[in-house]
Design a protein around this nucleic acid. Structure first.
Lengths: 100, 100
DNA sequence: TAGACAATTAGCTAATTATCTAAATGAATG
DNA sequence: CATTCATTTAGATAATTAGCTAATTGTCTA
C-alpha cells in the first residue's frame, strides 16, 4: 500500500492513471500528453508498475499500459477503512463512454 | 489536492491521521506512538496542516491536533471520481466506538 | 519570577526524486 | 541486414524530503 500512495503523490502519475481510465495506451501515446521527456515518463511508468497500478505488455514496437483499477480501489478502500472514512464501491462499472 | 496526496505519501503521516480518527490528540501524545524525534514529528504535523488535513489549536502548553475528515474525503472523492473509480460516502458516521 | 515542560524553529546531513541528454536494446520493415 | 522507430537504461544534477541535535519560544506552576 505504501508504494501505491508513493505513486499517487505525483500529479503526472495521477494524470497517467486518469488517461488510462478510458483505454490502454502505449508509452509514447501517454507521453504525448505531457511536457516532460520520454525517459522521465518511462521512470514514472516504472513507479506505477512497481506499485502494481498498471500492467505493461509489449505489442510489436510499443509497450501498452493498462490501468489495474482493482489494485487502486483496494488500496484506497484499505486506507479509508483504516481511517474510518467509510467509502464503498458504487457498483456502477466504468463503461468508457461517460463523456461521448 | 496535490498537497493532500503528498501528505498521504508518508506512512508516518497516514498513521497520524489514523490515530486522530479516534480523538483529537496533542503533539506529544501523537509523538509517543512513533520512534522518531519530536522535531521530526513536528515537521510531519506541518505537512498535514499545510494540506489542511488537520487543525491545530493551542491549549495551555499543548497543541491539540484534530483530523479534518471532510478535507480528506473531498480529496479522495475528487480523485476517484476523475479516475472513474466510483466510490461514494457510506453515510454511516464514525462513532469512535467501532472497536470497543 | 525561576524552573519545568511542550512544541517549534534552526541548521545540518543523507537519501530520494524528478528531471535531463546520450546511449543501448529490441522489434518491424524496406 | 541495415535502418527506423519505440522504449528503456545509464549517468548526471538540482530539488526535495525525512531525519537528527541543539536552541528558541511560550505557557504554566511552585
Amino acid at each position: 500500500m505504501n508504494k501505491v500512495f508513493k505513486a499517487l503523490s505525483d500529479p503526472t502519475r495521477r494524470r497517467v492513471l486518469q488517461l488510462l481510465r478510458d483505454r490502454p495506451m502505449s508509452a509514447g501515446e501517454l507521453a504525448e500528453h505531457f511536457s516532460v521527456s520520454k525517459p522521465t515518463m518511462s521512470a514514472h511508468f516504472t513507479v506505477l508498475r512497481e506499485a502494481d497500478l498498471v500492467d505493461a505488455s509489449k505489442s510489436g514496437k510499443s509497450v501498452i499500459y493498462r490501468l489495474k483499477l482493482s489494485v487502486l480501489e483496494d488500496a484506497l478502500l484499505a486506507f479509508t477503512g483504516a481511517i474510518g472514512l467509510e467509502l464503498k464501491p458504487d457498483t456502477a462499472p466504468h463503461t468508457g463512454k461517460e463523456t461521448p
